[in-house]
Design a protein around this nucleic acid. Structure first.
Lengths: 333, 333
DNA sequence: TGAAAAAGGTAAAACGTTTTATGCATACTT
DNA sequence: AAGTATGCATAAAACGTTTTACCTTTTTCA
């Protein structure tokens, strides 16, 4: 049941391997192969169902038509939706995606890059974590296209596509303030990437601009890799001990955990307790009452990422790194 | 910036390529290479950070250490959660996953298989759709491990891992009946795979067993690939025109669409209108009131799938096909 | 008419591994 | 002392492509 090789086709057609290869790769006219031969070989290829062995092709050409996608957690709806969009668009251009989740482990992330390297992926799409700077730098030094998305590493000059988290956060807090909220809490994670820390900066800035004093104990920094149970305990404490009247959750899973806590403790969301979540999710739409959420432009992010990487892949010369910041929208519910 | 090859290591160590290869692959003692040489070469490998080129390795050995995963839609939380679990477990055994979504398009599914084939993936994990029988048969004839999951193709004798949808559906309907419901509706899709049609069979059986007449107009079969908008229109009609007192949604996205309709139309879930969803989702847990749901044992499904495929991959002889049906749980909320 | 160019094609090297077959010492039997 | 293991190591083929360099025949045109 061995599959056909280019040699089988060559023999069947009574021409050389070279000729078949030229035809397969559309170089036939260029290399002045006669129409008759082209037709004949093409016919045989179609009839026999021959498909070139991509492995052999990759070994020879050095590229794999595979793009590596590294995210924090593919089962998070934000990432799985982006992944689906990216996959879709890449597929149309003849690229496949290999994805993997880092689970916020630097060691796993490094291993993944090594593995992708040895698999000779053509390019990398990475939602990075702190500590990966050197490895990414190395990839770029090797002239591999790299696109960071969602999260950025400040010490690194790389292509980046993401949403305007500062503005989105600022507007969220502002909207709380305009509703008359005074005790506004921020629940975030202690991960050290710009896109997360920015949310804290924007929070502080908005408060300052409206002359509301910043209180440290209104900010909960959850450890990025801890168990959900523990997170919920911490949130419960926060919700109980302070007379908070509004909460902004910095990620969708934090918001979901938060909603679980509220449901368990019977605390109601309403006029004297408002909530905004970061990254929209069906949960927020269907929740009673509806939960306002910051919605990132998934489609545009995916589109931009894939466009960026494709242009890098097709360009011979190294292109300048771009930073593309797309607006995020506050969906009020 | 060319990466190191086995030849570079061989030269550096002053031994042959063969020797290095044996050492890399743990065959050194077998081939009686001296300890001294092993140590020396290993040291050089570590120091230089050499990683074998997987492409070349694949070309030579004929296997890629990659498993292809084909699902309907990776952005569906059921699949993305399974994918994450599978990826995780596969990773630990040295396998990578390439995934792709069929979007229920038979053509795309076929293309994906062809693509995976030309990429020489070692095995296939597929949530299949009708019409793929022949292609899958072909894979098995080629002696490639294939595991179907979630959905089964009745005309095909293949490995299958899935939940007991008949029982789960039966129990769901039974629970409605025991609550005194009389007009029980089923919202399902018109896709022709056993795991979906089974839900209809179980629905009918449960009604029959409790002497409730089956009414065709209480069953809504949504077209599997239609726009959500259209689905919602159909559901709205169903909910309005019949005095339905209970609904079972056959998939989680149908349930989510259903909840959206209910929210829009202001119809309340409660004592005189109950809902059960298929495949649990955070939405159902956090919804007010909580939505009962049939929960498939994701972890066990993933574990079984990966175990099955790994045992096939490591066994020289073709193993008998297995059908593994795991119990699903009705979570009452 | 003769040289140059074009048309039509191919042989063979190369990509980086794994693996088979083989070689040469040295040590162990009898 | 001859024969046979055994320890240690390697040369070279093979996997299936792409691509470079080259060859022959025909056509062009000064």
């Amino acid at each position: 049941m061995k599959s056909l090789s280019i040699k089988d086709i060559a023999v069947k057609a009574g021409v050389s391997i070279t000729t078949v290869s030229f035809i397969i790769n559309g170089k036939a006219r260029d290399k002045s192969i006669s129409e008759a031969v082209i037709k004949k070989v093409e016919k045989i290829i179609v009839e026999s169902g021959y498909k070139p062995n991509q492995i052999a092709r990759s070994l020879r050409t050095g590229n794999s038509n595979i793009i590596g996608l590294i995210v924090e957690d593919i089962s998070n709806s934000f990432f799985s939706k982006i992944a689906r969009l990216i996959e879709d668009k890449a597929y149309k251009k003849g690229y496949k995606i290999i994805y993997s989740s880092t689970e916020n482990h630097i060691e796993k992330a490094k291993e993944l890059i090594t593995m992708f390297k040895s698999r000779k992926v053509d390019g990398y799409i990475i939602s990075p974590i702190k500590g990966l700077e050197e490895d990414i730098q190395q990839l770029m030094a090797d002239n591999k296209p790299v696109i960071l998305f969602d999260r950025n590493l400040p010490d690194l000059d790389a292509n980046y596509v993401g949403a305007d988290h500062f503005k989105a956060t600022y507007h969220s807090i502002e909207s709380f303030i305009k509703q008359g909220k005074k005790k506004i809490s921020l629940v975030t994670i202690d991960i050290d990437v710009q896109q997360i820390t920015e949310r804290l900066t924007a929070y502080k800035k908005a408060l300052a601009d409206y002359d509301i004093p910043y209180e440290e104990n209104l900010v909960l920094k959850v450890h990025f890799n801890q168990d959900e149970k523990e997170t919920m305990v911490q949130m419960e404490k926060l919700f109980q001990t302070e007379e908070i009247d509004a909460v902004l959750f910095a990620t969708n899973y934090l918001a979901i955990s938060g909603l679980k806590v509220l449901k368990q403790t019977g605390k109601k969301i309403g006029n004297d307790f408002s909530v905004i979540a970061y990254d929209d999710h069906e949960v927020f739409e269907l929740h009673t009452p509806g939960i306002s959420a910051v919605q990132q432009p998934l489609e545009e992010i995916a589109e931009t990422v894939i466009q960026l990487i494709l242009s890098q892949l097709s360009s011979k010369t190294k292109l300048d790194n771009q930073h593309i910041i797309l607006p995020a929208k506050l969906i009020e519910r």
